[in-house]
Write a protein that binds this DNA or RNA. Structure first.
Lengths: 215, 215
DNA sequence: AGCTCATGTGAAGAGCGCTAACATGGCGCC
DNA sequence: GGCGCCATGTTAGCGCTCTTCACATGAGCT
């Protein structure tokens, strides 16, 4: 015999779902997180949300728009995480900066769905103005942190903050993309991705003249 | 009126193609290069090669195997390009090292199909032993270069070569992935990706104590 | 109470991955 | 030189996805 609940946790709903858009996003994130951005399927997200395959089209123009939406939300959460880690450079910029690096990797590791949608799914940055804006704000956070660090240097020896921010982002993304994910199949390391990035950043800062005690 | 050649360069062939595997790889690379690793379709590659949609399965178990094959070839070409740029560290390791960096970006820029298959398509490194071997050889090239540079440092101040190679790869990949592609939609920069990487590497080397004239 | 429109459903077309059964003919063997 | 094997091609078809269209439902405003 079968109880009426064929699917788990299916609070009976009427013809209208009421909160479909959010549920689709959550379903999509679950799929992306476990099967990668390509394993995700519009139809399957609909199935998980308990609606017909055509229903999602009332909320997203197409599959790519859902992906872009996830990426946008990702950048927003990302920026918040970075801002919290940076904490306005307290107690001092160097300490805060290393927290920032760890936060970057933690995000990539703990939010694979967001990170995938943001950097691996091939979503063009200008898929929507909101996406671009969210990405810009996140980058601006990195840039502000870079500026605070650079301010510790004597005037003659200050590199452009934009360049430094780009370097930081590049190295962080490189480490995260190549070694930071749990998605087996990539290279095993003698050190954790976090340690690798931390060491790399220390060397980089040293090169700028921000070595320990140099300030 | 139409000349008999409906499709360009279609030398009439019999039932058997004769060189289908190679032609499929070339078709796949064309598609990946212009539409990304997801835009590539097994069926379309077959169409480009002028065979039926089922024919590719005589040469590749499935779509992923073709992708892995492209990635493997990519790593081989990549390793050759890096080795040529490194040129055994001549005339001196620093000069050769910067050539290496430029070669990395040039490869990412000039061979988008290879680079996509290698780093963006989500092909697991152990999809085949050949793939893993090719990737390992490429990395070994970077590692050897790192070792040569490190040898310039006084004994007490030498970091692990493996770590340095990982840093170099991370930063290179980060720059290439975020800013180095022509696939519009990403961020416009006040400097070229090559300049960005060059500057980053200079700062990093400076941090290691390999600054100009420090050797 | 009645209307309207956002939000759902079902059916359907086109395309893709992949398999199975069948066709062809290049090449090695006698 | 003729024969047969089997690598390599073909056609047919299943199940799935994305997407669109016409239609159904009912929540909320007037």
């Amino acid at each position: 015999m079968s109880w009426k609940r064929d699917k788990p946790e299916q609070p009976p709903r009427g013809y209208h779902h009421g909160n479909l858009k959010e549920e689709l996003v959550r379903a999509a994130m679950g799929l992306i997180g476990e099967k990668g951005p390509n394993g995700f399927t519009f139809a399957e997200a609909a199935r998980l949300a308990g609606v017909s395959p055509a229903a999602p089209y009332r909320h997203f123009r197409d599959r790519d728009e859902l992906l872009a939406d996830v990426a946008t939300r990702g950048f927003i959460v990302f920026e918040a995480a970075l801002a919290q880690a940076w904490d306005q450079g307290r107690p001092d910029p160097e300490t805060a900066f290393h927290r920032l690096g760890r936060a970057y990797l933690a995000f990539a590791h703990d939010e694979p769905a967001y990170y995938s949608a943001m950097f691996e799914a091939g979503v063009p940055l200008d898929a929507s103005p909101e996406l671009r804006a969210a990405a810009d704000r996140a980058f601006q956070g990195l840039r502000n942190a870079s500026e605070a660090l650079i301010a510790l240097l004597p005037q003659g020896k200050r590199p452009p903050a934009l360049m430094m921010a780009l370097h930081v982002w590049s190295m962080s993304h490189g480490v995260a993309a190549l070694f930071g994910r749990a998605d087996g199949g990539r290279r095993p390391l003698p050190m954790s991705a976090a340690e690798l990035l931390e060491a790399g950043m220390l060397i980089y800062l040293q090169g700028l003249g921000l070595g320990r005690g140099a300030a």
